[in-house]
Simulated scan of single mutants.
Amino acid sequence: MPILIGRLETEHGQKYLVQLCKHFAHKIEASWSDDHGRVDFVYGPAVMTADPLGLTVRFDVDDLGHVEDAKSVIDRHLARFAHREGIEGLIWTETGPEGADTP
């Protein structure tokens, strides 16, 4: 099962975490606080944490075929919410089933 780690350096990490979770909660299971959130997508859970320097998303994807969809669903929504900062998405790293990191 691939594990994606996405990171965005921003002083607005908490704001984006809450916006993402609230938005997704309209259609799928989501829970959040100011600095931690979880969204249960059909292809796996995304766990978000915010700190003073940014936002981190850990996405446990169920299948290699869903990796790009998982990245895209977060990036597209984040770009919409963070358009004033010119943000297009997270910087992603992937740990594959064999445990090898890939950019």
Rank of each mutant, 00 (worst) to 15 (best):
P45G: 15
H36C: 01
A70K: 00
G99M: 12
S31W: 07
E88C: 11
V67E: 06
L20C: 08
G6N: 03
A100K: 09
L55A: 03
I5C: 04
K22Q: 14
D35R: 05
F41R: 11
P2G: 03
A79M: 02
L17V: 08
G86N: 02
E9I: 06
G54K: 02
K15N: 13
I87N: 01
A82E: 01
G65N: 13
D40P: 06
G99H: 05
A25I: 01
Q14W: 05
F59D: 03
Y43L: 12
L78P: 00
K15D: 10
Y43S: 14
P45C: 12
K27D: 07
Y43I: 09
A100W: 06
D69M: 12
E11H: 08
L17N: 08
H26F: 06
V73A: 01
A50S: 12
L20T: 06
E29V: 13
I5G: 01
H23G: 03
A30N: 11
V61L: 08
D35Q: 09
D34G: 04
S72M: 06
R76Q: 14
Y43N: 14
D75P: 06
G6E: 01
E68Q: 10
I28H: 11
D101C: 13
R38P: 10
H36L: 07
V42F: 12
S33L: 13
D63F: 12
S72C: 04
A30I: 00
D63Q: 15
H26W: 06
R80P: 03
V18S: 03
G54F: 09
D34R: 05
G89K: 01
L90T: 10
Q14V: 11
E9G: 08
Q14C: 13
R7P: 08
G86D: 00
H36M: 05
H26G: 07
W92A: 05
A79R: 08
V39Y: 07
D35I: 06
Q14T: 12
D35P: 02
T56W: 10
L17Y: 15
G44N: 05
A30E: 07
V39H: 07
D51N: 13
G37A: 09
